[in-house]
Design a binder for these strands. Structure first.
Length: 217
DNA sequence: GCGACAG
DNA sequence: ATCTTGTCGC
């Protein structure tokens, strides 16, 4: 049961905020650290995790987990309203200030071009990238090799890429969140996904939050 | 009107 | 996201 008024309100806010997204990086932007963000659920209880990784060596610099809860249901297109509060909470716990945040979901590749990654970026002023495991709508299959990609379009505009991060695996869907360009975002994701389909950042954050969640139960 | 729909 | 065994591949 999703309260219609909360949904309408959220959608209106997305339209109001989406023009604030900046689609290019600051001069000489070269991220040295990247933080992966993820949330694991047990009903309405949840654990959010952030894992900061050295982009060059892929070693973990710092990680934090935070327990919390949600009152907003999962609604496609309104993911941010469910996860953003806990994601921001765990980010506040970090002592390190990551150069870029890698979100588990879409940025511009969203029905209203304002997915979780954009929302987080605009609200915090951080550089953000969205990496999702599935796409809204359809896309053309990219080539079979690591690094191959195809554009993801929405209403005639390129909003993201289906990026093959390993030979023969399903592509991930990369889109910018805030303060970066799509090319740089894909370059970063490919670098972080040196060993697996998913970037090391998201993988480690994923492991951390579900491990912490089972520790509570 | 019907189906599709990040996690 | 989460519920879940065995199984294919490096």
């Amino acid at each position: 049961m999703t309260d219609p008024s909360r949904v309408d309100e959220a959608i209106a806010e997305q339209f109001a905020l989406r023009s604030l997204v900046i689609e290019h990086a600051p001069d000489g932007f070269a991220p040295r650290t990247a933080a992966g963000l993820d949330v694991a659920y047990d009903g309405d209880r949840l654990v959010a995790a952030a894992c900061v990784v050295d982009v060059e060596t892929l070693s973990t610099v710092e990680s934090k987990v935070v327990a919390g809860s949600t009152d907003f249901p999962y609604v496609p297109g309104l993911f941010a309203y469910r996860e953003l509060p806990s994601v921001r909470a765990v980010l506040d716990e970090l002592e390190t200030k990551p150069d870029v945040l890698v979100c588990d979901g879409h940025g511009r590749a969203h029905p209203r071009r304002f997915g979780l990654a954009c929302h987080l970026g605009v609200l915090t002023g951080a550089v953000t990238v969205g990496v999702a495991k599935s796409a809204f709508g359809s896309y053309e299959e990219p080539g079979p090799r690591r690094g191959d990609w195809s554009p993801v379009e929405h209403e005639g505009a390129v909003v993201g890429r289906a990026l093959r991060t390993q030979d023969g695996v399903k592509p991930v869907f990369v889109s910018i969140g805030h303060l970066i360009d799509l090319e740089s975002a894909c370059e970063l994701v490919l670098r972080l996904a040196a060993h697996h389909r998913q970037p090391e950042t998201t993988r480690r954050a994923d492991h951390l939050c579900r491990q912490a969640l089972r520790a509570l139960a």
